[in-house]
Simulated assay, not measured.
Amino acid sequence: MTPLVLVFGSAAADLVFRLPHLPRAGETVLGEAGPMLPGGKGANQALAAARGGQGVAIAFAGAVGADPAAEVVTAPLRVAGVDLTRLRVVDRPTGLAAVCVDAQGANQIAVSTGANALARADQVGDADLGPGTVLLLQMEVPAAENAALILRARARGARVVMNLAPAAPMEVAALRALDLLVVNEPEAAWLGAGLGCHPDAAALHRALGIDVVVTLAERGAVAATRQGVVTASPFVVTPVDTVGAGDCWCGVLAAGLAAGMPLAPAMARANAAAAIACTRQGAGTAMPTAAEIAAMLA
């Protein structure tokens, strides 16, 4: 049976504003906006996993509206071969994101949840959650649905990976049922404050009893696991747009794990992919191919 990466999460159309600098409170900044682009953390991660190509099947479960923005999101997923049979069309608008990007590639993002609020764990059947599946989740759909799916997946034997992004409350029992938690430094700080521990990977690992990766942007990534500490070195690039880089990292990591890669090489491959994504504009449109990742690693 072909291994499966099943992504449960958000879908959104991104409207990207190129600005000389990011707005401060009360400030209007003039710039340029391009066409709507595919986005949403769940859809981005599914697209990254599919384009990153490790010979595994990729499926996406989420919710979109019956509107033109839905086609913006789903068209590239179809082209990449992502299975969309678990995607719901609901009576709410497709999620939207307004993304502001400055001249150095830094960003601010405002998201309208829309249809993502109606994503439900029961869109994923028990047959999808066996030992051959890596389930990948984020936090742009209801936390209660994430928690329910995590606990079902744990009972059925799937490998469960959560990207706690954006940082938001999640049942501690569900977090402790994960195989792997991925957070960036601000998310780690938020979680550590809630758990009463330091925000480094080792402290979060001890507090939750699960493997934890903290991504460190241009400084690479570090994981604290039951087997010890794993580090992944960064790739030096000149960033154009960092939107979606974290999603790229998570999707490529999940594909590597589903293909049977140990965590260390899967993290190295994710670092390479995210570095490439930072050199391109947009989120979903920036996800690299397997050949591009291999060239970066070489």
Score class of each variant (00 low, 15 high):
Cys197Phe: 00
Ala121Thr: 11
Thr28Ile: 09
Ser233Asp: 08
Ala223Ile: 13
Asp126Cys: 12
Leu22Ala: 04
Val79Thr: 12
Pro262Phe: 01
Val240Trp: 11
Glu292Pro: 00
Val5Gly: 09
Ala33Phe: 14
Val134Phe: 07
Ala143Val: 12
Glu32Val: 15
Gly192His: 06
Glu145Leu: 14
Thr85Trp: 01
Glu218Leu: 04
Val82Met: 15
Ile293Asn: 03
Cys248Ile: 00
Asp91Lys: 08
Val212Gln: 00
Ala177His: 12
Arg92Ser: 10
Glu292Val: 00
Leu178Asn: 11
Asp91Phe: 07
Glu27Pro: 01
Ala66His: 14
Ala167Phe: 09
Glu71Arg: 11
Thr279Pro: 13
Ala12Glu: 05
Arg219Leu: 14
Pro234His: 06
Val111Phe: 06
Ala203Thr: 08
Ala11Trp: 07
Ala49Asn: 05
Ala165Ser: 15
Glu292Cys: 02
Ser233Pro: 00
Ala97Glu: 10
Cys250Leu: 01
Leu151Thr: 12
Cys100Trp: 08
Ala221Ser: 15
Ala221Trp: 00
Arg24His: 07
Gly194Asn: 05
Pro169Met: 10
Ala50Trp: 11
Ala259Glu: 05
Gly282Asp: 12
Gly81Trp: 11
Gly105Cys: 13
Val5Leu: 02
Val73Tyr: 06
Asn146Trp: 09
Asn271Ile: 02
Gly81Asn: 07
Val141Asp: 13
Gln54Glu: 15
Glu185Ser: 06
Leu129Lys: 04
Val236His: 10
Gly34Ala: 11
Ala270Tyr: 03
Ala66Arg: 14
Ala203Val: 00
Asp241Met: 09
Met267Tyr: 02
Ala245Tyr: 06
Glu171Phe: 00
Ala43Met: 10
Gly95Arg: 00
Lys41Ala: 15
Ala294Tyr: 04
Gly132Lys: 00
Pro93Gln: 07
Ala121Asp: 13
Phe235Gln: 09
Ala266Asp: 05
Ala168Lys: 10
Ala80Lys: 05
Ala254Gly: 07
Val183Ser: 00
Thr285Met: 08
Gly26Gln: 08
Asn146Met: 11
Gly256Gln: 00
Val56Phe: 11
Gln108Cys: 10
Ala232Pro: 05
Phe60Cys: 06
Pro76Lys: 07
Asp179Tyr: 02
Ala11Gln: 04
Pro68Tyr: 09
Ala270Gln: 02
Ala290Gln: 02
Gly26Arg: 08
Ala207Phe: 02
Leu84His: 08
Leu191Pro: 04
Ala13Tyr: 02
Met287Pro: 03
Ala202Lys: 06
Arg156Tyr: 11
Gly130Trp: 03
Met36Glu: 15
Ala49Asp: 07
Val236Lys: 08
Val56Asn: 06
Gly34Ile: 12
Gly55Ala: 13
Ala57Met: 02
Gly157Lys: 05
Ala158Met: 06
Leu77Asp: 09
Glu187Lys: 03
Ala25Leu: 10
Ala295Arg: 10
Gly244Pro: 05
Ala266Arg: 01
Ala258Ile: 01
Ala268Ser: 11
Ala143Leu: 11
Gly209Ser: 07
Ala117Phe: 13
Ala298Pro: 01
Val212Pro: 00
Cys100Leu: 11
